[in-house]
Write a protein that binds this DNA or RNA. Structure first.
Lengths: 123, 123
DNA sequence: TTCAATTCTTACTGTTTAGTAAGCAATTAA
DNA sequence: TTAATTGCTTACTAAACAGTAAGAATTGAA
């Protein structure tokens, strides 16, 4: 079952208002979270199978991987290709829209790399 | 009291490993969350007083504003200038390091703006 | 008949992030 | 003496995000 949001909480309302006025908040909402950066990064190299993607992202659980892929798919940034085989084979790829993320993702990554030795993130 | 993290949770350990290997994850960690995009965005226009910043960011609570500013200050992206007056006057500004964020922030914002009418973010 | 392979689901629990509301400190103005 | 101003702090609660572990579906191979 999909996890429900409380659509009328202050939390949710605040988020909504932000997205209406701040493009950066939208971008960070899409890219944010623990795992999406890695997923998008790897998908930037081309179409890739579910299991392979999982192996490329250390520690990610199946629950998280599926959940994030679904979200990205829902927004139209990722496309899913399922083959009618047993055992199943499923491939994921960035859509054309998803590929517009790549330049940003790459500049984020480059900037982040410059910070690694400068700052100490809590945890 | 600063909020404590459980430094040995799987959650925390996963985050740490990610930062060690993925610059993008670092960047998203710094820029992420509900309020940091807006704070950085406004600070991009120059030094600004606490109360003014608060008025520029609708719905933000003092707790959140202070907390996020402190975090940004701790990493060296924001500088705090307190004047010994009553009532107090405090100004915030991006450091030189903080200014390196601006090009990224602007491209994120531009990209996010292109998405506003295309996608429907949950909440 | 049982097992293996692969891509998910589900239920449950733990951790982190965000919101609410009240209060404090130090002066100055009324 | 009381109230107002400004920039916070604190304690508490609610919501969202992340991790764990078990299991389901399908069919070919052992």
């Amino acid at each position: 079952m999909l996890e429900m949001r409380k659509e009328n909480s202050s939390n949710a309302l605040n988020a909504k208002e932000l997205y209406e006025t701040c493009g950066m908040a939208i971008a960070v909402r899409i890219l944010g979270g623990r795992w999406k950066p890695g997923i998008i990064w790897h998908l930037g190299n081309g179409r890739i199978r579910y299991g392979h993607l999982k192996s490329l992202i250390p520690n990610i659980s199946e629950r998280m991987l599926v959940q994030q892929l679904k979200e990205l798919e829902k927004y139209g940034f990722v496309e899913r290709f399922a083959f009618p085989e047993v055992p199943p084979r499923v491939e994921y790829a960035l859509t054309e829209e998803g590929k517009t993320l790549l330049p940003i993702v790459r500049s984020l990554a480059a900037w982040g790399d410059t910070q690694r030795d400068k700052i100490k993130l809590p945890v």
